[in-house]
């Protein structure tokens, strides 16, 4: 089905990963994240890398899109790596000025680098292959048990999806107001930061007023269409697991078991060596 959603970072193409149920993808991402923190030996990271590569290839999304997320955390990544490299205590390899580079530090730095990279790339696959509305549906379904502690899950999901629907509308509106204020001599390019922030007030005030007016209209329209909260609503597009999802779950399980087995084996080995 054609869905031209310009929002978020969804990459529109057809692939087995795109076809997966959003719940599968969300749970898969969680399993992957947990595995990166729980298992940190060389061999488990090799498996994690292999798994990541397989999913990337299957998703048909160009790798540069995946690496886009890396830009955002570049500074964070550098600081973390340098911190671990220079400030870990242990057996020194070489030292200069006040810094000691140790074997443990080097290992830790490399581990951190790969952990963060895998995390960012792994989670971006989720958002690259799932439309925002699908993601909302998936979250709603996964959070369903929270209804027992009286969290209005369906309503929260409705709010999220309405927010997504209105982002482009409000963006357009902001643009319009900005042009209108410019036409009346507003100055948005002032070098003085304080003045520039102040110049945004005449944009925000009308934007808020119009947003409230829209909200009021929308509420009327929804009520007129018999909306009465999440209870008793049926789904036009209910989530359904397909064969692919079971394959994905099986692979996830296999991945988890392999990583666990390797970790146990390595720990057993060290234990035996010590004994």
């Amino acid at each position: 089905m054609l869905r031209d959603i310009t929002l978020g970072q969804y990459y529109n193409t057809k692939s087995v990963i795109h076809d997966l149920d959003p719940r599968t993808k969300i749970l898969g991402t969680m399993v992957y994240m947990v595995s990166l923190f729980a298992f940190n030996s060389f061999w488990t990271y090799l498996i994690a890398f292999a798994a990541l590569c397989t999913v990337i290839v299957l998703s048909k999304v160009p790798v540069r899109f995946m690496l886009r997320g890396m830009k955002a955390i570049f500074l964070f990544l550098t600081i973390t790596v340098l911190y671990n490299l220079f400030l870990t205590q242990g057996d020194t390899i070489f030292s200069f000025w006040i810094f000691n580079v140790t074997i443990q530090g080097l290992k830790q730095a490399i581990l951190m680098f790969f952990r963060l990279t895998f995390l960012v790339v792994g989670t971006s696959i989720l958002t690259l292959t799932t439309t925002p509305s699908n993601l909302t549906d998936g979250l709603e379904s996964l959070m369903h048990p929270l209804k027992w502690i009286r969290i209005p899950v369906a309503e929260i999901a409705m709010m999220m999806s309405i927010a997504l629907r209105f982002i482009p509308v409000l963006t357009e509106e902001t643009d319009k107001i900005m042009r209108a204020q410019k036409a009346r001599g507003a100055d948005f390019d002032n070098k003085n930061l304080f003045k520039r922030i102040k110049s945004y007030v005449p944009i925000l005030v009308p934007l808020f007023i119009s947003a409230f007016r829209r909200a009021n209209d929308l509420a009327t329209a929804m009520e007129a269409r018999a909306y009465r909260g999440g209870d008793g609503r049926t789904k036009m597009k209910p989530l359904k697991y397909k064969a692919g999802d079971w394959i994905a779950y099986t692979s996830m399980l296999l991945y988890g078991i392999t990583a666990l087995a390797i970790t146990v084996l390595i720990n057993f080995q060290t234990f035996m060596l010590k004994a």
């Binding site: 997504l164 629907r165 829209r214 209209d217 929308l218 929804m222 269409r225 609503r233 049926t234």
Partner: peptide, 21 residues
């Protein structure tokens, strides 16, 4: 603009029906 709830045309058309169960 203020009365369309769905993010895709067909989803919006189905909104009222979903509410009716």
């Amino acid at each position: 603009d203020n009365q369309i709830v769905g993010q895709v045309v067909e989803e919006d058309v189905g909104f009222g029906c979903e509410n009716l169960g």
